[in-house]
Nucleic acid binder design. Structure first.
Lengths: 145, 145
DNA sequence: TATTGTTATACTCTATAACTATA
DNA sequence: TATAGTTATAGAGTATAACAATA
């Protein structure tokens, strides 16, 4: 066979970058979970609350954004609602829809959560502005945006 | 008060890079979970198996590497062992210790898992070699290595 | 006494399927 | 009929505490 691999085997540089990204991902996640825990939130709760702190969303949309089944969203919103961080509102246009929205307190917690994310400061602080710019451009191109 | 913030508020560029890293993290995770699911593994099982495909490790060390409690490792190894992907070996030097090791089949699955990680190819393929080099350097510095 | 791994327990997240109330 | 949200269910991950075997 002339082409033993359907897709090209990544070169050494690519493999190293993948490895490094894996480490960054692990550190980012650990930081995020830790910051959530400091606010007595689980990671899933923190992610949902962060989304709602930007704009209210129907349950269905939340499930899409969180890449999970709609039935899971019910429980997560239930728990946040029980703590007064989120509320469910009716949608006047479609009475089947429930729009989840962060409360004042919910937005406060989301802001505090965002600011306690050390990842924004520590590892990035190691980089010069030029490095941050080139990092930004590389990430943008990777994400195809 | 002269200094209203204990830590400096990140500038706009830093915030954008954090945002982008968040997206990369999300995509990486989604890819990883999907690749694991294709092998009928959960994310946690895939991570543990990947670790063991490099070298056998005592249960305690596994917990440290996975950043979780040792009691959790018991269950994950149980499930992988039931499928013949991992085995527990005694440690001759300390009879309290059990060393988890990937079986031949486990290493095969780990290799297949690694190769099915699209993240290694698709987003990085968008970058030129020079961009990958500068991305590597930035990531290295962020991780302090 | 301290440490390793396990068990028991309780909670959360997750997907699947069935249900309800709307559309 | 189709859709939005919920409920019921079961499996998996997680932390905590208590335990047995070994150091």
């Amino acid at each position: 066979m002339a082409t033993p691999h359907r897709t090209p085997r990544p070169d050494a540089l690519t493999l190293e970058v993948v490895e490094l990204i894996g480490e960054v991902v692990a550190r980012f996640h650990a930081d995020y979970e830790e910051a959530a825990a400091e606010h007595t939130l689980t990671g899933a709760q923190a992610r949902l609350l962060s989304l709602l702190s930007l704009e209210p969303l129907p349950m269905r949309r939340l499930a899409q954004k969180l890449r999970c089944e709609p039935s899971n969203v019910t429980g997560i919103v239930d728990r946040l609602e029980a703590r007064g961080l989120v509320e469910r509102r009716p949608d006047p246009a479609d009475r089947r829809v429930k729009v989840a929205a962060a409360t004042e307190e919910g937005r406060r917690v989301a802001r505090s959560l965002r600011e306690s994310l050390r990842f924004a400061r520590e590892p990035l602080a190691e980089l010069s502005e030029a490095e941050r710019l080139s990092l930004r451009d590389a990430l943008r191109r990777m994400l195809g945006s």
